[in-house]
Design a protein around this nucleic acid. Structure first.
Lengths: 339, 339
DNA sequence: CTGTTAGCGCCTTCAC
DNA sequence: GTGAAGGCGCTAACAG
């Protein structure tokens, strides 16, 4: 099999403890012995067994990352950037794709990360019980989604401000019938759709526009859902002239629905998204840009810092900037013909 | 700290080995004792330490997955589906995001997965040396990319047939100046761009069309690269009337370039992609569809089967079906005005 | 069917 | 600066 620490020790003519110390850069080894051991180890292709060392030390050098759906652009991007930060620091990433309720439930009851990770980054929003389960792990916790939660470092954006800028943009263009495609069907503890909805309602009220419940539809944060939602809105007795979608993927679904109805944005309906998806530019989608990759990287960095300085008080909340990106799916409403 | 196997053994009035056997469903434990142990374990919130059990058994119940870029749709989707198969079978996934050359090199020299995983699924194409390093792990290996390689189970598609259907479609529409956006700048051992290029050349030759090197550009398999490549092609003295992009993301970049030049597909230039990206439908992109998620799931299943039946001969190659999906970015070339 | 005995490979005192 | 023990928590072979 592969070389063990004893093989290296024997070949280098020292004890296993010295090899251990030398390879991990701990003090108490003379430089020449250290170099010699490094050479021997390299030559034998020795790498310490993570199982054995974590069993002995209690440290795993592994971070658990919880994701609802890896294939979705937002999560893939956050995961990508977070992984880079972790691996650069010598940590491995254990990935848990917890999209389905069953998988999720099993994860939180069995908690397979117990004794297996030094920290957890969750991209899904745990409810009270799940949060407690994670806290019971006794390791640093971080997230890039949802509101402030005790025991978690959350790196997020100002959902309210982002939504306001999007909806105000539509109001300023002269729209009065402004629909919203939201992702309300998610778990209740996911505050994002709620915050965005409140901001939407506030802007409408502020502009003196009466809210019409028929102008809201659930898009489930997916392209297909967005398409369904838009179709629903178009079927209303008085359809919207503009739509704010709570995510770019839903906005793209909305655009697809428009195409299917032989309608165009912005000529027939204006559409604004949220995220600044990698492909938003391709379809010319006006959207609220948020620094997705940076959020993942920042959350990862904050987690590593907590690992380095266990005594320092971790930041409870970090807010990243957002900005409205104007493209081609928004325009003033078309003057209405005689009704 | 958390409960250990001995705590459970003591509380249940049995030995640790019995607990171990009972909880893992091994034979040799009476039903009543098994139930009792399960109850005690649940009550104590006991989960076996993976480090300890893998150290003792040599089995890790962990799969290493190597990805060039998690944020890219193709890889995210494969990873997503593979992870689901693995986790359903009780395996954890260790993710390695090996996009940059340095990360990649470090991974293959240190091989941190040694003694840490039971199998490896790689979504990046290892060169000869890297393949050897992976084989030295002594675990089952699989991939969803690249050509047949000894020691690997590869789940792929018929790149040649896919490309042919795309380029033939353009020929049949009447195009004669057909450009290609490829991803040739990748590592040399990546055969995909080469295979697709050969198929492209063959179809042209077959149709009696002379190949013009000025009609090929490198798009690096990214949206930005596709945009650059298209811009390049448009600057040619005699630009193409149709373009085959080796991936949907490059095709979308090409569409973006067209928009920037105030040109439209298919009116000015026809565009075909490859993949059937989740959003290809949104932009109406004609493309060669491949079952991306299914490839990940199938590769994962084949890996698990090898773990279950170590003696069975693993399949060297599995081919999944492709099909051309006609949408709105392709049409006959516009009749040329007097020149 | 169940308990006892040895390790798995490494890290961590504690001596020297 | 270095080596010798002991143990991390679990599983595997062997008894009974």
């Amino acid at each position: 099999m592969t070389a063990s620490i004893n093989d290296v020790a024997r070949a280098a003519g020292v004890s296993a403890s010295t090899v251990s110390r030398a390879l991990r850069g701990r003090p108490g080894v003379s430089d020449e012995v250290r170099d010699q051991i490094a050479a021997v180890a390299a030559q034998l292709g020795y790498t310490a067994s993570r199982s054995a060392s974590s069993l002995a030390s209690g440290r795993t050098y592994t971070i658990g990352v919880l994701v609802p759906y890896v294939g979705r652009w937002f999560f893939g991007t956050v995961l990508d950037s977070a992984e880079k930060v972790f691996s650069a620091a010598g940590y491995d990433v254990l990935l848990y794709n917890l999209g389905s309720p069953e998988t999720r439930k099993r994860f939180f009851t069995k908690l397979p990360v117990r004794k297996r990770v030094d920290a957890v980054l969750t991209l899904l929003i745990p409810d009270e019980e799940e949060s407690a389960a994670l806290r019971s792990l006794g390791v640093p916790l971080a997230t890039t989604v949802g509101g402030i939660r005790p025991g978690f470092t959350v790196v997020g954006i100002d959902d309210r401000a982002g939504t306001e800028s999007a909806v105000r943009h539509l109001v300023n263009l002269g729209h009065r019938r402004i629909g919203m495609i939201s992702g309300a069907s998610g778990p209740l503890h996911w505050t994002t759709p709620i915050e965005r909805r409140n901001a939407y309602l506030d802007v409408l009220a502020d502009a003196g526009i009466e809210h019409d419940p028929a102008l809201e539809a659930d898009g489930d944060y997916t392209v297909e859902g967005g398409e369904r939602a838009m179709t629903e809105l178009l079927a209303a007795s008085r359809p919207p002239t503009a739509v704010f979608a709570q995510s770019d993927e839903m906005a793209m679904g909305a655009l697809r629905a428009l195409r299917r109805h032989r309608l165009k944005a912005p000529d027939d309906v204006s559409v604004v998204g949220f995220d600044d998806h990698e492909l938003a530019d391709v379809v010319g989608l006006t959207t609220v840009a948020q620094p997705v990759a940076e959020q993942g990287a920042e959350a990862a960095r904050l987690l590593l810092r907590q690992l380095d300085e266990p005594d320092a008080e971790p930041p409870g909340h970090v807010q990243m900037p957002i900005r409205l990106v104007l493209r081609e799916t928004t325009a003033p409403p078309r003057p209405r013909g005689p009704q």
